[in-house]
Design a protein around this nucleic acid. Structure first.
Lengths: 325, 325
DNA sequence: TTGTAAGCGTTATCAC
DNA sequence: GTGATAACGCTTACAA
């Protein structure tokens, strides 16, 4: 690989002049510029990003730490992040924490080794002390994506509002008892309960949550639930599409007819939700916008350093109603 | 971030000694080692990978250039690659060419800027002159994944054999006419035809291919095809699951009953294939093995440089028969 | 066993 | 306008 020094030798100028030309510094003789540029082009000169980074300026690298790239939603997100970053000349080092906190922590160290200019992350526990600590130790900008992390810059969906929207939709479709598939402290569930309450449903009596671990456990729990709630039409809200799809499968095995006896709606509106039969209704996140906002904020933090108030961008969910509700 | 020089200052030794300790060089006084190690730990020392890379040794970075990370198959592949690379201490810079050759070319330059130690790629056109050229210009190891590139190291499925397997399976299920959804020069299609011929089907009369562009075009083409082949049961082989799923959808719209009037099988055996109704049969690729082989070969090329014969690893496909055939 | 010093390819700060 | 020259943090001879 040709270097600036080499180009300098070939064009009989100093290395600093080459640097000036290549960085568009106007104070160079047009003729010299021509010559240098031609030589660089001819040898397909590529900047040594390591040297540049070492010297103290930016590496134009961003670290992206996700929980699970094989989840279609995160894969889409990664794609959009890469696209947006590229637009601004940044490349992406991708890390997949696999929901392993030790690994996540390790990755927070690895990004430092490469002197990335900033980090975009989907933390495993965005409000844990450990996460806050790793993020603080890292003395570069960090933006949390898809989650709301206390005291940190973030871009995320209004999960609470999403829960409310779902509540409204399920009620409108005439469901009478409500089930959330996911953790009881999930913000979506909170919003779901609040939304139902607002519309006159007693959350204490009519709403409940079941965690999803595997198909067999879900089958037992759902079977049980449907027996107890024999007379009612059930509206199910799953914390993501993958979970909802497992739900659909289990309902099929239990011979519970979807839209008659129950309705089910997922979250993320992943591509595959449209491929189910029935097509899975879902809450859509504006992925492209989320990626664009996150990247653009991260880069502005990188390029205009210094203290600043915490920045939070809340995006609005929308319902992608299909056939399962 | 603390540096070796800084640790040296704090522990009253020279920077080279710190380097020796941190690199596990045995020729250091155990007591000194203790002291240095303790100091490094205390300040959470992280190697400056830029300086190390600049100095001429490895960056421990691999460039991964994919065509479309939002395709579940590639997302899984990326996940496995990252996992395998991590095991050996490498990180991954990920690029998504979006099937854009200009972008792919650009990425081949970007990886040079970061002095990645090697590249793992799913090229857009693995046998094009442009690709061969970009790969050659890059004077670091390149391993092609999922495709077979003439004259280059690669790990890929035996696509030809996959076509043959599918031929056998569809015939066994009693289909009489055969349709390939994809390009006529696809190796899978070649193998498919050969497999059918071997089993006594006349490829000229009974086998044909249709390219897939969008649902409407596919609907017209399939409608037409099914009318012409009115009396026959049709076996359809799609070049990947995404295409197959579009096929399923179109068949549904045309009211053509799957498994009665026709069967359809995809490729990649992506997660979502199991979520369809009917569940989509598919050809499975050993993703984990492919990633492991590719990474391990790439790293051995990196760590044992020098000329070597072209290496090709052909993995065997397996059929994941579900409900659509 | 330890320290000194050169060099990797940049950018940035000076003089000229 | 241009060219020296000093960093940046590391590895690697070479010297002691």
């Amino acid at each position: 690989m040709i270097t600036m020094t080499e180009i300098a030798r070939l064009t009989h100028v100093s290395q600093s002049t080459v640097s000036r030309v290549l960085n568009g510094n106007p104070k160079v003789d047009p003729e010299t510029r021509e010559r240098v540029l031609a030589c660089a082009q001819e040898h397909n000169y590529q900047l040594n990003a390591l040297a540049k980074g070492l010297q103290g300026s930016r590496t134009q690298l961003i670290g992206v730490i996700l929980t699970d790239i094989s989840n279609g939603f995160f894969a889409d997100l990664a794609k959009q992040i890469e696209l947006e970053a590229r637009k601004k000349g940044y490349s992406m080092i991708l890390f997949n924490s696999r929901y392993d906190q030790t690994l996540e922590r390790e990755y927070m160290n690895v990004v430092r080794r490469y002197h990335v200019d900033g980090v975009l992350a989907v933390p495993i526990h965005e409000n844990s002390r450990e996460w806050a600590e790793s993020a603080r130790e890292l003395d570069i900008p960090v933006v949390v994506v898809t989650r709301h992390a206390e005291g940190m810059d973030s871009v995320h969906l209004d999960h609470d509002r999403a829960g409310e929207l779902v509540a409204g939709h399920l009620l409108e479709r005439g469901y009478e008892r409500f089930l959330f598939l996911g953790r009881s402290y999930d913000v979506k569930y909170i919003g779901f309960q609040r939304g139902l309450a607002k519309l006159g449903v007693d959350p204490g009596r009519s709403v409940q949550s079941i965690e999803f671990h595997d198909d067999e456990q879900l089958l037992r729990d759902l079977d049980n639930y449907f027996q107890i709630n024999e007379p009612y039409r059930i509206g199910i809200f799953a914390y993501n599409d993958i979970c909802a799809i497992h739900g659909l499968e289990v309902l099929r095995r239990l011979h519970i007819p979807v839209t008659q006896r129950c309705g089910i709606i997922g979250f993320d509106d992943t591509e595959m939700s449209a491929y189910m039969a029935p097509k899975l209704s879902s809450v859509a996140q504006p992925i492209q916008e989320m990626a664009a906002e996150a990247v653009s904020r991260l880069i502005s933090r990188i390029e205009e350093p210094g203290p600043h108030p915490v920045w939070n961008r809340t995006l609005q969910p929308s319902l992608a109603i299909k056939e399962s509700t």
